[in-house]
Nucleic acid binder design. Sequence first.
DNA 1: TCTTAATCGAGACGGTACGTCGGGTCTTCTG
DNA 2: CAGAAGACCCGACGTACCGTCTCGATTAAGA
Lengths: 224, 224, 224, 224
Amino acid sequence: MAAPDPPPAPQRRGRPRSVAADRAILAATRAALVEVGWSRLTMSEIALRAGVAKTTLYRRWAAKSELVVDAVAVLFDELELPDRGCLRADVEGVVISFAALLRRPETKTALMAVLAESTTDRALRARIREAIVDRQKRLVLDGRSRAQQRGELPPDPPDPAETARVVDLIFDVIAGAVVHRSLVSDCPVDETWARQFATLLLEGLGAASTSARPQSEQAQPDTF
Amino acid sequence: MAAPDPPPAPQRRGRPRSVAADRAILAATRAALVEVGWSRLTMSEIALRAGVAKTTLYRRWAAKSELVVDAVAVLFDELELPDRGCLRADVEGVVISFAALLRRPETKTALMAVLAESTTDRALRARIREAIVDRQKRLVLDGRSRAQQRGELPPDPPDPAETARVVDLIFDVIAGAVVHRSLVSDCPVDETWARQFATLLLEGLGAASTSARPQSEQAQPDTF
Amino acid sequence: MAAPDPPPAPQRRGRPRSVAADRAILAATRAALVEVGWSRLTMSEIALRAGVAKTTLYRRWAAKSELVVDAVAVLFDELELPDRGCLRADVEGVVISFAALLRRPETKTALMAVLAESTTDRALRARIREAIVDRQKRLVLDGRSRAQQRGELPPDPPDPAETARVVDLIFDVIAGAVVHRSLVSDCPVDETWARQFATLLLEGLGAASTSARPQSEQAQPDTF
Amino acid sequence: MAAPDPPPAPQRRGRPRSVAADRAILAATRAALVEVGWSRLTMSEIALRAGVAKTTLYRRWAAKSELVVDAVAVLFDELELPDRGCLRADVEGVVISFAALLRRPETKTALMAVLAESTTDRALRARIREAIVDRQKRLVLDGRSRAQQRGELPPDPPDPAETARVVDLIFDVIAGAVVHRSLVSDCPVDETWARQFATLLLEGLGAASTSARPQSEQAQPDTF
DNA sequence: TCTTAATCGAGACGGTACGTCGGGTCTTCTG
DNA sequence: CAGAAGACCCGACGTACCGTCTCGATTAAGA
């Protein structure tokens, strides 16, 4: 995430780059994103807000999208997964807090924008995965191992590749569902939806298809 | 989907708008999207390809994003859900064909681009939902009613709002997972992944977490 | 001046052209010229003001410049040369009234605009001469024949071509000087200037170069 | 004449403006004027010919008309007044050479066009006077002082304002007559016309009205 | 202490696309 | 048939950003 383009020879000659400028630029990028959105976000505007020349931006980032990736990556790292006692509660918790993050204008705008750019830019795709996406798989790993310790989930299969496949699947399902609900369907991710989604995730389509509250709350304890 | 901006008084004065131009513009938009992608897609280029003046574009669509929504909406309507005999097969089928659609450059690039724009544009958000997203819920409705007829899923709950909630949930989960896997995680949606995802969807996390093939294939028959 | 483009077959079939439209268009053209000037004068605006469709304009005039020529030509015909008793007074009178005409925004703007257009348009040049310029030579002819009757000027030379050359020369000098003073030098054509100009015209450079008022008023009768 | 818009602080920050670009733009403007005339003269075309971006044009000149004023101003500076021995010959000479200048397509087309624009633009009017018109008064001043040294004209009156009025008058008469003859009446300014005009200017209407050649040639030496 | 070299700010540069405007033509329905 | 309405193609407009470049002015580290 952190370091911009090349973390170069540990000490070059000449005037060193200003670290204050780096911070100012990233903060200015976030602020500008909130106010004007991606499509009206310009390098000149960022430079102006950061009190920095355009040259300084381009010396550090090759493109607007890379700058934005770095600027918002740190926000995603704020996600946490406190232990709520059972797998269902942990799922609901992460869904709610991820949705809250996606409600912030700078995150939702930046995320979709860089993803859009990434559809035609392999390097950017990799950078996004490194700086944003893959870092959040820690949440799945944490929740899963906790649930295994509680006996809510079976232990890892012998093949580690198989484990990775499962983790990836769960991550895509949770993140995808929340993003789609929030940004595509444009509907609120509230506690009701989180509960229903957790039921689907834990028990499958049949359980989620029956009337929601009473059964699922009964079903919850005895599922595991 | 079809009609652009105002579907006005059924017979206005003056020269009527050319329907041929409409068709040519949408086709040219798709063709240009394939060749140059979203970021290099220009209104002038579209007009040139369509054999149409730029003014004609702006008379019908207020922005490039709205034009692209209409241009690609029709592609999503090509999705079908042939009856494969059981719910699991239907799920796997729709996942595979949706992923195939998302591999086409004009769809993936256009979809993400307009979604990105839509994060700061309420009207565009509504247009996307109307023209693209909500129309595909038919796939969920079809598959669900088929599964109910087969006895694979319980009948609709008495409250129709509850049914709508469930349908929306399923749609967000399937569409979100496929989009996330394809465009964010940048991994292939192949038969293996589809099978694993279907297991998760039908039986929940516990089933999906155990080693994939044998158990799930055993589990499949006894679902119904 | 009078008729627009083709003074056609005295009675054609079908609906005859509206003469009211003609008048409305020319009036609208003059009004629009005053308000927005030539460069911002548009055919659409004229049509709108005249309550007429653009088609109707183009059916009658081939270009904006021709329309403007016709619209302002009538204004120049208002110039008159009342008999003020002597050649000097007649010259001063015509200078003053011509300058007054050139102060009106629609005349000065229109005249210079169509002249500018005419530098690259032979047909327009002819139309301007016919409709505006040559018609005003009557002023020179009148003043000259009056002065000849008074004995202030010698009679016409035997060769009529020679007479025409002299009339053209006088016309170019008077009209040119007033236009240049008004529109190029952008200085007022007041009584002082008119008197000085008349002295130059009647008596030549030497007389005009000496101090102005007293001498020239003495000099006037005896010419030296 | 020379400098474009703001002649600012003698050393500003940032990259200085390219003087080569200035020269290239003005030359390109003249060349384009010759080829396509004023009405088809576009900023893009000028920029293209000059090898310069459109932005560079707009950074220096607010409007096409101002650019053209600067571009053609230098051509008018080429006018000279060689000493031909007597006032009459000097007048005829300047008339002929001014008419030759007005026959060049770039000058006549540009001059009339910017004058037309200037009727509704006070600033442009001032710019034209500064850059083109007033600079040519030097010709009148030169010719007049030469004639005074020769004894062909009386010395300056005591009041300098009176001198200025006379110079302005003579300038308006000569320039106005030549422009009107050339561009409005659309007739050639040849030696015959020049001689006739000089007679009018030097001796007044009466002399010019009599049959031209013999008398005026006799009159020429003994007039002063 | 003096180079030396890379940074900084500012802003002009060549480009590309924008969205608008006006020109003139055409196609429709209404009088 | 003329007229109004207005859509059509065309091309220029002036603006906004892009990413690069040239300036003079800083700012360290190495000589």
